[in-house]
């Protein structure tokens, strides 16, 4: 009954002003930017050639020449970390792309059509949930061969139902809203209404979920590479660096600590960014904190 907007129309502060006052958005955004910059920089410059083996300088501790030291094959750890960022980002971006590209249209279609088609789409989605990314990766290993593509596809397939459910869940209540009814009375069809009213009104939700899936993708890529189902040598990957460091835990724990910290910071940054975006893009979405 009571609509506070009746008393004082809501005048939101501009997005930029609110963003600059939002600590977790700022921190998360800064971390994500640093990782992205590091990855981009690695295309043109790394301190040493990434992945170049030189047994003579193996297991050097951190120094001015090798900031993070070298591993058991004498590879420069910092350079590997920088190139590893490329792998992490690329795999998880493509996986989110697959999820958004397939999942969102499916969810929108299911919500627009309802009925048998909608039911079928959503049932199929429920079904994919029974296959964790790891199991998909195991099953698809020989189709694509172990490597970045396998990881991308496996994580991407796992992302499809996530985005389909999200889009479907967000679209269904929108379809019953009166402004959609009004659009139908204005003679607009399902596709046009989806494009003009449904999709724009769930965009914020999709952006927030995309950041979350991005961070989950980075974790998943690391895990897959760790067990040998992901990126293969000589392509550097944080997950594989951890695998290689495992036997040296007692000798050089630094080799496990550095890539692990890189993963934690990146994921943490993306999650903070996601939380911040959730608050900033739509205050109604934000859980009370």
């Amino acid at each position: 009954m009571t609509h506070p907007a009746d008393i004082a129309p809501r005048v939101p502060r501009p997005f930029v002003a609110r963003a600059l006052a939002h600590p977790s958005f700022l921190l998360g955004g800064a971390i994500a930017l640093v990782v992205a910059a590091m990855a981009l920089l690695s295309f043109v410059w790394t301190p040493h050639e990434a992945g170049a083996i030189e047994i003579a300088r193996k297991l050097r501790p951190p120094s001015t020449e090798h900031w993070f030291g070298t591993d058991q094959f004498g590879r420069d750890v910092l350079s590997m970390i920088m190139r590893g960022a490329v792998t992490s980002m690329a795999v998880s971006f493509v996986a989110v792309g697959i999820g958004v590209g397939l999942g969102v249209p499916l969810g929108l279609l299911a919500a627009a059509r309802r009925g048998v088609l909608g039911e079928a789409v959503m049932r199929a989605n429920d079904f994919v949930f029974a296959f964790p990314a790891l199991i998909i990766a195991i099953m698809l290993r020989d189709v694509f061969g172990p490597g970045a593509v396998n990881a991308m596809v496996a994580i991407g397939i796992f992302n499809v139902p996530v985005f389909a459910r999200l889009a479907y869940g967000a679209a269904l209540p929108l379809w019953t809203r009166e402004f959609v009814m009004a659009a139908r009375v204005a003679g607009k069809g399902g596709a046009l209404i989806t494009l003009e009213h449904i999709l724009p009104n769930m965009l914020n939700l999709l952006i927030v979920q995309a950041t979350v899936q991005l961070s989950l993708g980075i974790l998943a890529e690391a895990a897959l590479s760790y067990v040998g189902l992901g990126v293969q040598p000589p392509q550097p990957s944080w997950g594989r660096m951890l695998n290689e460091a495992q036997t040296l835990m007692a000798l050089a724990p630094r080799l496990a600590l550095i890539p692990g910290t890189a993963i934690v910071l990146t994921v943490l940054g993306l999650n903070l960014l996601g939380d911040g975006l959730r608050d900033l893009l739509d205050p109604r979405l934000a859980r009370e904190r």
Binding site: Y226, L242, Q246, M249, A256, G260, V267
Partner: peptide
């Protein structure tokens, strides 16, 4: 805690 990969945590 959410950001920590479980296998890395295991190594620690």
């Amino acid at each position: 805690g959410i950001a920590v990969p479980n296998f890395w945590f295991a190594m620690l």
